[in-house]
Amino acid sequence: MKLAEVIGTVFGVGLLRPASGTWGSMAALPLAYGLFQLGGFFLVLVALIVVFFAGWWATIQITTQGDDPDPSRVVIDEVAGQWVALLPVLYGAMFAGVEVTRLWPGWIAAFVFFRLFDIWKPGPVGRADRRHDPLGVMLDDVIAGVMAAVIVILLAIAYHVPMILG
């Protein structure tokens, strides 16, 4: 297997069926956890940047060999988007000095809302997807991740503010 395929399919996770994108998002969770345990929030942030550019490169390599601008086996974009959605949870754990697994509702919300926005493709997610190029493949998931991250933040505020005020 060529390097671009290894990266693009996240070591073959993208070959799982059905719903390869969901499998890719699920694979992103333990990867984020492991990176957070190894080096904290900032390691995940650096890894996210590396994954975005490596994924863009891999998608270029994979799509030049076929006529599908967004092959379902390419799930590195889901990893990047899922990590973006998790950033508020990881930052919250770092800020509060708590074990990141204690914020499990945030993990679930990040996963569910990322998948929702990635599948539904509202507004800017759909615009990025309609680029039909490798950058669009990566960007639609990153934008879906940003939208999910905003929801995660709003849910955290809705949960914590009454506790602080009450």
Score class of each variant (00 low, 15 high):
132 H>E: 15
92 G>D: 03
70 D>Y: 07
117 F>M: 09
117 F>Y: 09
66 G>T: 15
124 P>E: 03
106 G>L: 02
121 K>M: 10
77 D>E: 13
72 S>V: 02
96 A>C: 05
114 F>L: 07
119 I>G: 09
80 A>G: 12
76 I>N: 02
129 D>G: 11
81 G>R: 00
68 D>S: 08
72 S>M: 04
84 V>C: 00
68 D>N: 15
89 V>T: 07
67 D>R: 13
86 L>N: 06
71 P>K: 01
68 D>V: 09
129 D>F: 14
93 A>D: 10
131 R>K: 14
76 I>T: 10
103 L>W: 00
95 F>R: 13
110 A>R: 02
107 W>N: 11
121 K>L: 10
86 L>E: 03
67 D>W: 07
127 R>K: 15
69 P>A: 03
117 F>C: 06
129 D>V: 08
98 V>S: 07
94 M>D: 12
130 R>P: 11
117 F>T: 07
118 D>S: 08
122 P>N: 11
125 V>Q: 08
130 R>E: 14
66 G>H: 09
94 M>Y: 10
113 F>I: 15
90 L>P: 04
78 E>S: 12
85 A>L: 02
94 M>E: 12
71 P>H: 01
132 H>R: 14
93 A>H: 03
126 G>W: 07
116 L>F: 15
97 G>R: 07
99 E>Q: 06
131 R>F: 09
86 L>S: 06
132 H>W: 04
75 V>A: 05
117 F>W: 05
85 A>S: 03
94 M>R: 07
101 T>F: 00
111 F>Y: 13
132 H>Q: 15
65 Q>H: 14
81 G>W: 00
93 A>Q: 09
128 A>G: 10
67 D>N: 13
90 L>W: 02
79 V>A: 10
